[in-house]
């Protein structure tokens, strides 16, 4: 089938950038979205044009490296899926697709569809850790974890840090990402010692990175490839407010 692509082309972070139209005539429906871009790029290279830069690594939906906006939806139209796991069978002959990089002040465009997501790393560095005693391995099950907490924590820990939540949010807020990290650690006994400090530090860092504020719209939850729930944002809000009020 034939797919028409409008892709954001931007040479570097200083370039102004613009949308460029491409036609991919021989798209196989078994291809993944990224394979379709690979085919386009091979064609561009043969024509001596600059291939489209896009981020990718594992191509099995677990690393969080890939992703771009497809017709205004982060990771494309299929819910609970990263771009690499989206297959061309979900599109039809002659579809026109607009591909744009994640848009946020905190995610500057590096080139074409590639953005710099180090702001997420700095949020993690601000408090996304626990302190453990090094040395010999602790006994298994020495610290008991309630089953429900383990499940909820694991759900939050599924976050792969792809940035789709920020990209889709009308406020470019990193609330779902930050909330997932705070919930993931804060639900476990090992995360308790730094729980208050973590909420305050990570929220402050997200603000400093110029991510927007959450207005409880739910766009992030709808496009999250790991289907992380808005509940983690409420938990972050609760932890932050409690830490602010009760800190000594």
């Amino acid at each position: 089938m034939k797919i028409i692509l409008h892709i954001w082309r931007q040479r570097n972070c200083k370039d102004k950038g613009k949308m460029t139209r491409y036609e991919v005539p021989n798209v196989n429906q078994e291809m993944s979205f990224l394979e379709m871009l690979d085919v386009l790029n091979e064609d561009l290279i043969l024509k001596n044009e600059e291939p489209v830069a896009f981020d990718h690594d594992c191509r099995e939906g677990i690393c969080g490296t890939c992703g771009c906006m497809v017709n205004g939806m982060a990771h494309g139209p299929l819910p609970g899926t990263t771009l690499c796991q989206l297959h061309m069978r979900h599109f039809k002959e002659g579809d026109e697709l607009y591909l744009e990089p994640w848009r946020a002040a905190a995610f500057p465009v590096v080139k074409d569809l590639v953005v710099d997501r180090s702001a997420f790393d700095r949020i993690i560095a601000a408090g996304g850790y626990i302190s453990v005693a090094t040395g010999s391995a602790p006994d298994g099950n020495a610290v008991l974890v309630p089953k429900e907490n383990a499940e909820c924590s694991m759900d939050a820990a599924a976050c792969i840090g792809c940035g789709a939540c920020v990209a889709m949010c009308p406020n470019a807020s990193a609330a779902l990402f930050t909330g997932a990290k705070i919930a993931h650690l804060g639900l476990l006994p090992q995360g308790q010692p730094e729980r208050d400090q973590r909420a305050i530090a990570m929220v402050a860092q997200a603000r400093q990175e110029l991510f927007g504020s959450c207005t409880n719209i739910g766009e992030c939850e709808a496009v999250c490839p790991k289907e992380i729930k808005l509940e983690v944002i409420a938990r972050m809000n609760g932890d932050f407010i409690r830490a602010s009020l009760t800190g000594r």
Binding site: G72, M73, Y98, E100, R103, G212, T215, I217
Partner: peptide, 26 residues
């Protein structure tokens, strides 16, 4: 917060769809 929102996304999307936003929330 509105000002922060505008600062947080200085370049708008060429094409943007809504996935879950209600009319009220937007």
């Amino acid at each position: 917060l509105w000002k922060l929102k505008n600062d947080a996304r200085p370049v708008a999307y060429v094409k943007k769809d809504d996935a879950a936003a209600t009319y009220a929330s937007r």
